[in-house]
Design a binder for these strands. Structure first.
Length: 298
DNA sequence: GCCCAGGTGAAGC
DNA sequence: GCTTCACATGGG
């Protein structure tokens, strides 16, 4: 990572970073985050309560905000620009499935998302397709988030509703966003966080097992959603969410289609994929989902 | 209509 | 322990 160069113009602020092995399109569109939208100039999203447009240009990553920025740590942290990627790569097992996934998903990175948005989003993900999760979250933000400043001519943008904002609603308010049986789960999680019964900021200081148990106290949070929050929002690189795709991937690629329980798969993953198993998981997930598709440019 | 989707919890063996 | 099923909603 290099220091960003900054060129203010009007209310807008811009920055540029030199990156290697960083595929913005794959990273923003691989199913770890749900709020990024492609437009003619890049990707629009909301990070740390700010509207931002990201784009890539060869080895350069560009960012544009609606308001002046005194500093960019909030975005560098989200994009994990300080990560020593070659060091992560060296921890992966050298086997045929992993080599294929790495070749197919070159440049895919993990983001460091806000833990609350991550928890709420994955609570809404249960037995939903990614496009439908995106739609539900968009309705939630438009209905109950706060309007954010955007550049002239851009479509409206909204913050992700805080735990307090959601805690003040009732179940039918949430069901109006078409989240179905997930509504009481989201409401319960929002109230637990708003009332201080769950401290998301404390989780990174705990062991993986302790943090997982804290999250699983919430109704609607099992091992899969807990590990998504720990991997994408709390900085546990060894967390390994096992969903239908990973289940399929592991069985097909490592177990010749033998049937295994999620518990057995989790144990295998922890042993086989090493200290950054979660990164390996995201490569296998994206590899399985895009296998057979024509390569998209981004 | 039927089946599936980045699951979970309750109830049945 | 493991298996089965309901739970909302939308798309193929």
């Amino acid at each position: 990572m290099t220091e960003p160069s900054q060129l203010p113009s009007g209310g807008v602020s811009r920055a540029t970073w030199a990156v290697t092995d960083y595929d913005l399109a794959k990273t923003l569109n691989c199913g770890q985050a749900f709020r990024w939208r492609r437009d003619e100039r890049g990707w629009q999203g909301v990070v740390a309560g700010r509207w931002v447009r990201l784009s890539s240009d060869g080895g350069l990553l560009r960012a544009e905000t609606a308001l002046p920025q005194a500093a960019w740590q909030w975005l560098e942290h989200y994009l994990q620009l300080g990560l020593d990627w070659p060091r992560v790569l060296r921890t992966f097992p050298d086997d045929a499935p992993m080599r294929a996934a790495l070749a197919a998903c070159r440049g895919l990175r993990l983001l460091r998302q806000d833990p609350w948005e991550c928890l709420a989003s994955f609570l809404l993900s249960a037995t939903k397709q990614i496009v439908q999760i995106q739609t539900i979250i968009e309705r939630l933000c438009q209905s109950y988030g706060a309007r954010l400043p955007t550049p002239a001519g851009s479509v409206a943008a909204f913050s992700f509703p805080t735990p307090e904002q959601i805690a003040s609603l009732c179940e039918s308010d949430l069901r109006a966003c078409k989240m179905g049986f997930r509504a009481p789960h989201l409401l319960g999680a929002a109230r637990a966080v708003a009332e201080g019964r769950l401290d998301l900021e404390e989780l990174p200081a705990l062991s993986l097992e302790e943090a997982r148990e804290h999250l699983k106290r919430l109704k609607g949070v099992g091992p899969k959603i807990a590990d998504c929050v720990l991997l994408f929002g709390c900085g546990f690189p060894q967390a390994f969410p096992v969903d239908v795709w990973i289940n399929r991937a592991l069985r097909e690629l490592y177990f010749r289609n033998r049937k295994l329980t999620p518990r057995q798969l989790g144990a295998f993953a922890a042993e086989h994929f090493g200290p950054h198993a979660g990164y390996a998981q995201q490569y296998l997930f994206h590899y399985m989902r895009t296998r057979g598709e024509q390569k998209l440019s981004g």
